[in-house]
């Protein structure tokens, strides 16, 4: 008998559990399919237990726990006992984290740079169950200093970094947009975070103030003007400013020349907004038709009145 082979690569436990759940689902589905073949009775899998001989390893770089099945004549393997049982749909819903219920589902990585969180800090937060910005804000409310101290101590993350992360998490952010057509009217739905504080939200498209039809923290519905075909989105809320880029596709059947004849945003593509890359690329492509009514940077220059937010 020999000891474990250190050079072999293991499988992350997360990957294994997802894969085995998928395999059991497939087995259950196949058993259910048999019922359609006219058999009077079929089997349904009720319980599943498995004992595996594995070596448990820790990948120091990623912090992931890896499992590797013991090879021939390897000694010292651990026995891992897993037990699955059938649960009902209400039980799943009761015990599952729902991304749809998350008020701010941005991954924690999205504020990592602004909050000065390094990979080790993010790993420690993940171990506390914090994967999204919304979870961070629920874990560490900004006005609870004592709680913040305790979390910093527990997670070994400097409190200053947590405070910076909370500040970054509270800033507005534009993450994408889509056009919404209702009858002959065209609206723009802007998606993001902290886009409305319950008091006031101001939106400019290509430098023009536009009507905000509906405002929620994670999305805004605005009414573009007729000449708005593409340009910079600016959202001002609570003294903070977030930027992105928009493009309104021409209505079906509109001539291409008319579609390209609107205000073109040109250089804002380089001003550091945080709109989706595809939108920024589209805006840059249209800039070849010439600058818009406010010149290459809009009415406030390349960074607007307060500068863009990352």
């Amino acid at each position: 008998m020999s000891g474990p082979r250190q050079s072999s690569r293991g499988v992350p436990v997360d990957d294994f559990l997802q894969a085995i759940a998928e395999q059991l689902d497939k087995a259950q589905d196949s058993l259910a399919l048999k019922a359609r073949t006219g058999r009077p009775l079929t089997w349904a899998l009720r319980d599943f237990k498995i004992a595996l001989q594995v070596f448990v390893e820790l990948d120091a770089a990623s912090g992931q726990v890896l499992w590797r099945t013991a090879g021939p004549n390897e000694s010292g393997a651990s026995t891992v006992n897993l037990e699955f049982t059938t649960i009902t749909k209400p039980m799943i819903e009761e015990n599952s984290y729902s991304i749809l219920d998350e008020s701010d589902a941005r991954p924690i990585e999205s504020i990592g740079i602004a909050a000065d969180l390094d990979d080790e800090d993010k790993l420690r937060l993940r171990r506390l169950g914090v994967r999204t910005v919304g979870q961070l804000r629920r874990l560490a409310p900004a006005n609870e200093r004592q709680q913040l101290d305790a979390i910093g101590e527990l997670a070994s993350i400097p409190v200053g970094k947590l405070e910076a992360a909370l500040r970054a998490s509270a800033r507005p952010s534009v993450q994408g947009h889509e056009t919404v057509r209702k009858g002959d009217q065209t609206f723009l739905r802007i998606r993001g975070a902290n886009l409305h504080d319950g008091i006031n939200t101001e939106v400019r498209l290509a430098g023009d103030p536009v009507e905000v039809v509906d405002a929620r923290p994670n999305q805004l519905l605005v009414r573009p003007m007729e000449h708005h075909s593409s340009g910079q989105i600016e959202v001002m809320v609570g003294g903070e400013r977030a930027t992105g880029f928009f493009r309104v596709p021409p209505p079906a059947g509109a001539p291409l020349a008319a579609a390209l004849g609107g205000a073109a945003p040109s250089a804002p593509a380089a001003s550091g907004g945080n709109g989706a890359t595809a939108h920024a690329t589209g805006a840059a492509a249209l800039s070849a038709t010439g600058p818009g009514p406010h010149g290459p940077h809009g009415p406030h220059g390349p960074h607007g009145p307060q500068g863009g937010r990352a």
């Binding site: 019922a35 359609r36 058999r39 009077p40 009775l41 079929t42 089997w43 349904a44 899998l45 009720r46 319980d47 599943f48």
Partner: peptide, 8 residues
């Protein structure tokens, strides 16, 4: 493995 019988 634990199976239970089921009528289609």
């Amino acid at each position: 493995l634990g199976f239970t019988s089921r009528k289609p």
